[in-house]
Each structure stands twice: as structure tokens, then as C-alpha cells.
Design a protein around this nucleic acid. Structure first.
Ligand SMILES: [Mn+2]
Ligand SMILES: [Mn+2]
Ligand SMILES: [Zn+2]
Ligand SMILES: [Zn+2]
Lengths: 136, 136
DNA sequence: ATTATAGTTTATAATAATTCTAAACTATAA
DNA sequence: TTATAGTTTAGAATTATTATAAACTATAAT
């Protein structure tokens, strides 16, 4: 039952030693069948639920940040007050539901940009992902 | 030199009485030749600079919020830590420079979306504006 | 014009997400 | 096995924003 090597590898390549806490965080993030869109608050609740091992909020923040820097998570800027993260690191778009505050993936080729402006001189496009705000 | 009626009207239709402080805020926002992209911190600096009349930060926050609700300002979600606002209330797109943290307008017809996904059942698209992140 | 009242301004406190700190612990290399 | 560099954690600090409440003011009624 110790199939943690993938998580350990992600931690190592993120510059982190594989500790019990970090492996648990990695499991909660990456051992999923579907994309996980989350805030740190939500991840903290998932990890520190009833009876489970406890991981401090500081460690969750630090590990999420390291995974983001290493490219294993993507940050989605959606909300004024909270950071959202995404386990889907491919370039893709999102619906953001203003009512439920939930993100949903839109496949990259579901959006076609037939005209894109040229960036100002000396600047390069780093990222072009569309967030479509929806509501009832 | 008292051509403040436009500001007074904006305040009134935002549900605010035209006070000295609010008129000064409105002047700083709307008496401009070009679009103004700003954070509350920046607006506060502009208004409360050397020797000028003082307006409290709370009043600036409240007035910006009222103008936003009334549709005279638009909020741009760009940054994790600070809210950005825009005096250009037409539907349009932006470059966001990750280095300087400045927004630049992109005219609406400089971006062509030839394919847009259908929103989930029961949901409507509220907004589709593109933010293109740029850097050196 | 005077006054009563509802609305406003302001300093300051509270809140909430995030980051920092430093002491107790632990993975790992020697 | 041990030394050391790295880690975890509770709690403190930070920072943008929002709330509070007392002193002020625009406005409508007299
Ligand atoms: Mn905030
Ligand atoms: Mn923050
Ligand atoms: Zn996604
Ligand atoms: Zn703009």
C-alpha cells in the first residue's frame, strides 16, 4: 500500500524533502481522477477532517507555494479575496461561477482566438487564458 | 471654475450626497483625458498628496465601491493581493504587465473570439474579458 | 433662515488571507 | 549513530479591506 513514489518525486523536484505531512498533501492534491480546483482553506479542510492526521496550515501554504513554483499546480486569479489553485497544469480556460464560486475547466480548443493584439515593444505574452464569468 | 455638475450627477445616481470629499474623489477619477487604472492605495496617494485637502481612506474605499456598484467604475481582477479599478467602463480587454503591475487597455475589437463554449445549463455568461499577462 | 434628521466623515478597531518567526522536531548524509 | 540542514508548528505579524461609532453636514421641512 506504499505507492508514494510519484508524490515523493514531485516533492523532490520541487526542492522539498518528502516528509509525512508533504506526502499527505501531495496525495490529496494529485491522487485524483479529476481536476481539482481549490483554495488553501478548502484543501486545509479536506486534509484536516475528522480523525485524520493533522497538518498545520503553514505547511499547507508552503507546500502549495512550492508545487506552484515547480509547475505542478497553477494559480488561477479569479477572486478578490482568495487564491485559487488548479491541479490541471495544461494551458486551458475556465468558467467561474459567481454564485457558487466554483471553477470549471474549458478545454483549450473550445475557445478560438482568431485575433490577438501584439504586446507592447519589449514585452512578451506570458499567458493568455480566458476566464468566463457565469451566473444563473 | 465650478463645473462640478457632472461629478455631482454621478454621485447622486450612485446614491451618494455630493460632499466636498466625494466631489474631490470624483474629480480625481473622471476629470481625465485617458483611462485611469488604479488601486485604492494609488488613488489615495493621488488625492492626499502634498498640501491638498485630506480625504480619509475609508471614504475613498466607500466611494469607489459605490461608483463600482453604480457602473461608473469597473473592477479588474488581476492581482492576488490588491483590487484594481478602471474608469473605462466599456467592455474591453487588458494587458497586465507582471513586472510593473500596470494594466493597459486593449480595444474590444482587437481580440476576436471565433469560438466560445456554451455555459453549463441554467447559467448565463455574465462577462468575457481577456487579460493577457505580459513581461519582458 | 432655522432646525431636525438622515446621511457622512473620520480615526481607529476588527477581520481575514497570507506570511513570518523561532523553538521543537526529523530526514539524510557522513 | 550522529551531526546538520531542513521541517513543522503555534502563534505573531502583516496587509488589504471592512466595520464602528462619535463628531460633523447636506437637505428638507418648518
Ligand atoms: Mn482582502
Ligand atoms: Mn493577501
Ligand atoms: Zn482548471
Ligand atoms: Zn481598462
Amino acid at each position: 500500500m506504499n505507492n508514494n513514489q510519484a508524490f515523493i518525486d514531485k516533492l523532490r523536484t520541487s526542492g522539498l524533502r518528502p516528509t509525512k505531512q508533504r506526502i499527505l498533501i501531495a496525495k490529496n492534491l494529485f491522487e485524483r481522477s479529476k481536476t481539482f480546483h481549490f483554495t488553501v482553506e478548502k484543501l486545509n479542510k479536506v486534509i484536516n477532517k475528522k480523525g485524520s492526521a493533522k497538518v498545520s496550515l503553514a505547511t499547507i501554504y508552503n507546500t502549495v507555494e512550492a508545487f506552484t513554483k515547480a509547475g505542478y499546480l497553477k494559480e488561477i486569479l479569479t477572486s478578490k479575496s482568495k487564491s485559487y489553485y488548479d491541479t490541471n497544469i495544461k494551458s486551458h480556460h475556465h468558467f467561474y461561477d459567481e454564485g457558487t464560486k466554483e471553477l470549471t475547466d474549458i478545454d483549450y480548443n473550445q475557445v478560438k482566438l482568431s485575433k490577438v493584439p501584439v504586446p507592447p515593444k519589449g514585452k512578451k505574452i506570458k499567458n493568455l487564458e480566458v476566464i468566463i464569468r457565469i451566473q444563473k
